[in-house]
């Protein structure tokens, strides 16, 4: 039986109603398709008893808060934005180890949501967790590949009960639910974005300066690949972004020696994120991306293209 989004919507509205009863819930919305779908389902299930919250961690994509608010309002979901960038940057200062970064972010998210829940008397937290999140977070005989912030990154002590309507689904199934719910294509077809945000695209220590570099570089990669896909020069990749390495390399700019950051461009094909292969992008397009990144971001001196599949790599770098 192929997956039926309509049947899934009916069942998950009923089970969410049963789980929350007459209680209030807040939902953590990141702007990705998973949390947007969870928000739409829970809005139908819980009506006035739900608030949708977007946390600006300082590690989001360019203009993300405003963009997500606009996209979701067209789908009838009212979004509140909470600014928490200072809290996130200060708790991440000096931390280099990727699993530690993910755990700090997971905990910070929960604390922000708990503070919001307390103000409103909400007992439940809804998350858009999908199957690969808990699979990769480990458990039983399964190794931890990475602790997804919404599963392995959760603190041990939490004051809210979790509701996760999409736990058994994969990305392509979530997209079909999004279409069946009537969400606009800019949400249903949106590329995946990691929960910890740009934090996992900055290898090593996170600083506001590095976040700014990777944010700009991601915006350039998105712009170029999306417009190439629109011109039908390439098939739209499953996920595409830039990441920043902690290494500087030597270059020459206007006859002067330069010693600057290295950016990695990654673009992959996948269905469900469980396996992936790097996109075979045309060299002209890669050249355009590298020229734009090094010209528009003056602190970047070198651009690499990641040619590793998953396995053995993962899609994101950390």
């Amino acid at each position: 039986m192929p997956f039926s989004p309509e049947k899934f919507i009916d069942e998950s509205i009923a089970s969410t109603k049963a789980a929350a009863g007459k209680g209030k819930a807040i939902i953590a919305v990141s702007g990705g398709v998973d949390s947007s779908v969870a928000a739409a389902i829970c809005s139908r299930a819980l009506g006035k008893n739900i608030r949708c919250i977007f946390v600006d961690t300082g590690l989001m994509r360019k203009d993300e808060g405003a963009k997500v608010k606009r996209m979701l309002s067209s789908a009838g979901v009212k979004l509140e934005v909470v600014d928490a960038d200072r809290q996130f940057f200060s708790s991440l200062a000096g931390v280099e180890e990727p699993e530690k970064k993910r755990k700090i972010i997971g905990e910070k998210f929960i604390r922000v949501f708990e503070a919001e829940a307390k103000k409103w008397g909400a007992a439940f937290l809804v998350q858009g967790t999908i199957a690969p999140d808990w699979i990769e977070s480990g458990g039983g005989s399964r190794h931890t590949i990475k602790s997804h912030h919404n599963v392995g990154g959760l603190p041990e002590k939490m004051h809210m009960k979790l509701i996760e309507p999409l736990r058994e689904l994969y990305k392509h199934e979530v997209r079909s639910v999004a279409v069946a719910l009537g969400l606009p294509p800019e949400i249903s077809q949106r590329q995946p974005f990691p929960g910890p945000g740009l934090a996992v695209r900055i290898v090593g220590e996170i600083t506001p300066e590095k976040a700014e570099i990777v944010r700009e570089a991601c915006a350039i990669v998105e712009e170029e690949l999306e417009s190439a896909a629109k011109r039908k020069e390439i098939e739209k990749p499953w996920q595409y972004f830039a990441a920043l390495l902690p290494t500087k390399t030597v270059g020459v700019r206007g006859d002067e020696r330069a010693y600057q950051y290295t950016v990695v461009v990654r673009s992959v094909r996948s269905l469900d994120g469980m396996t992936a292969n790097f996109s075979h992008l045309p060299p002209e397009l890669l050249q355009k991306i590298s020229t734009r990144i090094t010209n528009e971001i003056r602190t970047v001196g070198r651009v690499l293209y990641d040619i590793t599949n998953k396995p053995p790599a993962t899609v994101e770098l950390e």
């Binding site: 039986m1 199957a131 699979i135 990769e136 039983g140 399964r142 469980m274």
Partner: peptide, 16 residues
């Protein structure tokens, strides 16, 4: 489940 990343994908494929 012997600890594979793909155990749940097997389950999904069978369902499909």
């Amino acid at each position: 489940d012997m600890g594979s990343q793909y155990t749940h994908v097997i389950w999904r494929t069978i369902r499909e």
